[in-house]
C-alpha cells in the first residue's frame, strides 16, 4: 500500500527537469505538426528557411556524393568484370545493328536536306541547354521521387525547366533556391507531363504514381497506341520543349497503358537543364515556369 502511494506521488511531483523535458517534447511535436500543415499551405517564410538550410547543406552533400559515387563505381567495376564476355557479345551485336542504322541515317539526312530545300523549311533547332547540374541528394523514399541539384537560381535555373539525363527526360525543376534546386522525377506522384505518342501522334498526360512506370492518362477515346511506341514531350501549353525523348509504351499489369522511361537511372548523376520555350501568347505572361499540375515542394 505504502509502495503504491509513493509511486503515485512520484508520478505527480516530477523533478523540474522532467517537467521541462515533457513541455519541450510537447512543444516540438506541436511545431512538427505546424510545419506539416504549413508545408501544405506553402508559406513563403517557411520556404525561405528551408531554402537557406538546403543551400547551406548542398556543398556538404556534394562532398559526400563524390566518395559515394566513387565507391559505387568501384563496386560496379568489380561486378562488370564477371559479365565482360557477355557484355562484349552484346556490344558487338549492337555495333552491327547501329552500323546499319548509320547508313540509313546518312541516307535520310541527305534526303531530308533536299526535301527541306524544296519546301524552304527551317532546320529544327537543337534543344536549348541552359546548363548542366550535378545530383547531390536522393529522396530515397517511397513517398517522393525527387533529386536535389547543386545549381540554383544564381546559376540560371528556373522553375519548370525540363531536365534531361542520359537516355531521355528525367523530369522538371519544381523548387529553386539561390544555390540548389529540386528535380521532380517523371515517376513522382505529383508529376504531370503533356506527351505525344508516336507514330499515332495521340496526345496524353503522363502521370507519375511513385511506381517505376508512369501512366498514360487522358488518351483519346480510340487511341491508336501499341506497346513499344515512342513517347516524346508534346510541348502542349508551352511549358516544355517539343520532342524530348520520354520513353516507350508498355502494358501495365491492370491492362492500362504505361511508359517505361528512356532515361538510364544508373547514370542519373549529372543532368542537363533545358531552357523553357517562349510562352505562346494565348496562355498569357507568367505561365512559363509555373508548375501547372505540380504543387511546389519544400525542402
Amino acid at each position: 500500500m505504502t509502495r503504491l502511494r509513493r509511486a503515485s506521488f512520484a508520478s505527480i511531483v516530477l523533478p523540474p527537469r522532467d517537467w521541462f523535458d515533457r513541455v519541450r517534447f510537447g512543444g516540438l511535436v506541436g511545431l512538427a505538426l505546424i510545419l506539416l500543415f504549413l508545408g501544405r499551405a506553402e508559406v513563403g517564410s517557411v520556404d525561405r528557411v528551408t531554402h537557406g538550410v538546403r543551400d547551406a547543406l548542398t556543398p556538404v552533400m556534394t562532398a559526400v556524393a563524390e566518395p559515394a559515387a566513387a565507391l559505387d563505381h568501384a563496386f560496379g567495376w568489380v561486378g562488370r568484370q564477371f559479365a565482360l564476355a557477355e557484355e562484349n557479345a552484346r556490344l558487338r551485336a549492337q555495333v552491327e545493328r547501329l552500323l546499319e542504322w548509320r547508313a540509313e541515317a546518312t541516307r535520310l539526312q541527305v534526303e531530308n536536306a533536299s526535301l527541306r530545300e524544296v519546301l524552304h523549311a527551317q532546320r529544327r533547332r537543337p534543344v536549348p541547354i541552359a546548363r548542366t547540374a550535378r545530383v547531390v541528394a536522393d529522396s530515397r523514399s517511397p513517398f517522393v521521387h525527387t533529386r536535389l541539384l547543386d545549381s540554383g537560381a544564381r546559376a540560371g535555373v528556373r522553375e519548370g525547366m525540363a531536365v534531361l539525363a542520359t537516355g531521355g527526360l528525367a523530369g522538371r525543376v519544381v523548387d529553386v533556391s539561390p544555390h540548389s534546386a529540386r528535380l521532380l522525377l517523371l515517376t513522382d506522384f505529383n508529376s504531370r507531363l503533356p506527351v505525344l505518342v508516336l507514330p499515332s501522334r495521340d496526345r496524353a498526360i503522363l502521370s507519375g504514381d511513385n511506381g517505376p512506370r508512369p501512366r498514360l492518362d487522358f488518351m483519346p477515346l480510340t487511341p491508336q497506341v501499341a506497346a513499344g511506341d515512342r513517347v516524346v514531350t508534346s510541348g502542349a501549353a508551352g511549358l516544355l520543349p517539343v520532342g524530348l525523348e520520354v520513353g516507350r509504351v508498355v502494358r501495365g499489369d491492370e491492362g492500362n497503358l504505361r511508359v517505361r522511361p528512356a532515361l538510364d537511372w544508373r547514370e542519373l548523376r549529372h543532368v542537363r537543364l533545358v531552357r523553357s520555350p517562349p510562352v505562346p501568347a494565348e496562355f498569357g505572361p507568367g505561365v512559363a515556369g509555373r508548375d501547372a499540375g505540380t504543387p511546389r515542394r519544400d525542402g
Binding site: 512538427a32 505538426l33 510545419l35 508545408g39 525527387t146
Partner: peptide, 25 residues
C-alpha cells in the same frame, strides 16, 4: 535529446524533399 532528434528529422526532410516535419514528428 528531443530537440536533437527534431533537428535531425528536419534536416532529413529538407534534404530529401519529403513533407517538412514528417520525419521529425
Amino acid at each position: 535529446t528531443s530537440a536533437a532528434v527534431f533537428a535531425v528529422g528536419l534536416v532529413y526532410d529538407v534534404l530529401s524533399g519529403q513533407p517538412l516535419g514528417g520525419t521529425a514528428l
